[in-house]
Amino acid sequence: MTAITTMAAHTHDCPDCLSETRLVHLADNIHVVQILHDDTCPTYQRIEGD
């Protein structure tokens, strides 16, 4: 993982909670950004439809 890739993933943190951002390697040259929201996040609740 390069510094540029890490920095790009870091900029996707949720503004509404103390989320964690992970860059997940799926295959060669294929990665996804995974955002792990905390339980009280209003953005996550909207996404999940709660």
Rank of each mutant, 00 (worst) to 15 (best):
M1K: 08
M1S: 12
T2N: 13
T2C: 13
T2Q: 01
A3Q: 10
I4D: 03
T6K: 13
M7C: 11
M7T: 08
A8S: 14
A8C: 10
A9D: 05
A9C: 08
H10E: 15
H10I: 02
H10W: 01
T11S: 07
T11L: 03
T11E: 11
H12W: 14
D13E: 07
D13A: 11
P15E: 04
P15M: 05
P15C: 01
P15L: 08
D16V: 01
D16P: 00
C17A: 03
C17Q: 00
L18K: 05
L18S: 04
S19H: 14
E20L: 13
E20M: 13
R22G: 11
R22Q: 15
R22N: 10
R22K: 15
L23K: 08
L23Q: 08
L23H: 00
L23N: 11
L23E: 04
V24N: 03
H25W: 08
H25E: 06
L26T: 04
L26Q: 03
A27V: 11
A27N: 14
A27L: 10
D28C: 06
D28Q: 06
D28R: 04
N29E: 10
N29D: 09
N29W: 04
I30A: 06
I30C: 08
I30M: 12
I30H: 04
H31G: 01
H31I: 01
H31Y: 08
H31F: 04
H31N: 03
H31Q: 05
V32H: 11
V32Q: 07
V33G: 03
V33S: 03
V33Y: 00
Q34A: 14
Q34E: 15
I35C: 09
I35P: 10
I35D: 06
L36R: 11
L36G: 02
H37M: 15
H37K: 14
H37W: 15
D38V: 10
D38L: 04
D39S: 03
D39I: 05
D39A: 06
D39G: 07
T40H: 13
T40N: 09
C41P: 05
C41A: 15
P42Y: 07
P42H: 12
P42Q: 08
P42M: 08
T43C: 03
R46C: 09
R46N: 06
R46Q: 15
R46D: 07
R46G: 09
I47Y: 04
I47R: 09
I47C: 09
I47L: 13
E48Q: 12
G49Y: 00
D50T: 02
D50V: 05
D50G: 02
